[in-house]
């Protein structure tokens, strides 16, 4: 199992690097950012490092990739070699290059989808909680009904109807996910809306926009940021699963989910290459989850004291 060993070594190396960076941050930073650096657990530092690496790879993909994303540059299913470090895929495209471009496509699309879901869901959720009354009732009951259908099943239904282009994919997943964001944002905001300082602001005669912007949002930020991380993981996994099922992002666009699907036959021959894109997905999700866990712990820890 030379491969498993090298994966473990690589992860250990990342952890070591995260540890070194954290130590460095502790010695350089001052003030509030210093206290964050002191407080951050190793897992979260690892998560932040991984996220930073992914972001860098996504941005610099054309510079990093040895071959173009979509071009056939060699034979089918070539083994790992000096020229093609990770071999070639089912129709002879360079695996490493597609893996690098995948960071751009898969992560980018998941991020855009999450952001869309988040903006729509949280604005509606905050608004519903603040306004209350029939608007809140109508929106909430509607969302309850939509949420009583499992997310993946509902997405599949909508994709059947609207087709499976990248744009419909983003819109459909964002719509389904916005219902979850709505529910959380509403719950968070409801906890805030009952506070006396909101009543005080209402009695002062403040408008809805001021209430959301200055009174509710600053207090809802911490849970919403953590939720953004969780929702990103969920969207990212859903899109990858759909791509894997052949219903999401499609070749020739380089995408981690469909790369697993395309090359899955190799696995039965004991070749790990098709698992690399899946591993990339898993690593990023683990990283985000580590950071989210730390944020949630911080939020709850602050509450206790």
């Amino acid at each position: 199992m030379g491969f498993a060993t090298s994966v473990l070594l690589g992860l250990a190396g990342l952890f070591a690097l995260a540890w070194v960076l954290r130590a460095g941050a502790r010695s350089i930073l001052t003030g509030q950012s210093r206290s964050i650096a002191n407080d951050i657990p190793l897992t979260a530092a690892f998560g932040l490092l991984v996220i930073a690496i992914y972001a860098a790879v996504a941005i610099a993909a054309p510079a990093l990739a040895p071959f173009p994303e979509r071009e056939i540059v060699g034979g089918q299913f070539q083994a790992w070699s000096a020229e093609h470090l990770l071999g070639t895929d089912r129709i002879g495209r360079d695996m490493l290059s597609r893996l690098i471009y995948g960071a751009r496509n898969t992560v980018g699309i998941a991020f855009a989808t999450t952001a869309l879901a988040f903006v729509v869901g949280s604005i509606l959720g905050l608004w519903a909680a603040l306004t209350g009354g029939w608007l809140d009732q109508v929106l909430s009951r509607f969302v309850d009904a939509l949420m009583s259908i499992p997310a993946l099943i509902f997405s599949l239904l909508l994709l059947t109807i609207f087709g499976t282009s990248v744009l419909t994919l983003i819109l459909v997943i964002a719509a389904v996910d916005a219902t979850r964001v709505f529910r959380l944002a509403r719950a968070v905001a409801q906890g805030i809306v009952v506070m006396d300082y909101i009543e005080a602001a209402k009695l002062r005669g403040e408008g809805a926009w001021f209430l959301i912007r200055r009174e509710i949002l600053p207090n809802a930020m911490a849970p919403l940021v953590a939720e953004f991380g969780l929702r990103f993981c969920f969207v990212f996994l859903t899109i990858s699963s759909l791509s894997f099922l052949g219903l999401g992002i499609k070749p020739p666009t380089a995408d981690w989910g469909s790369m697993v699907r395309d090359n899955a036959t190799l696995i039965t021959f004991g070749d790990v290459t098709p698992l690399l894109p899946a591993g990339c997905i898993a690593l990023l999700t683990v990283a985000v989850n580590f950071v989210v866990d730390w944020q949630l712990h911080r939020a709850s820890g602050l509450k206790e004291s």
Binding site: F244, G257, V260, L275, A278, I281, A282, T285, V286, N289
Partner: peptide
């Protein structure tokens, strides 16, 4: 558990 949650189902399956 956190790691397992983060893995796509097909990744777990192929492993």
């Amino acid at each position: 558990a956190l790691t397992a949650i983060s893995f796509p189902e097909f990744f777990v399956a192929y492993i």
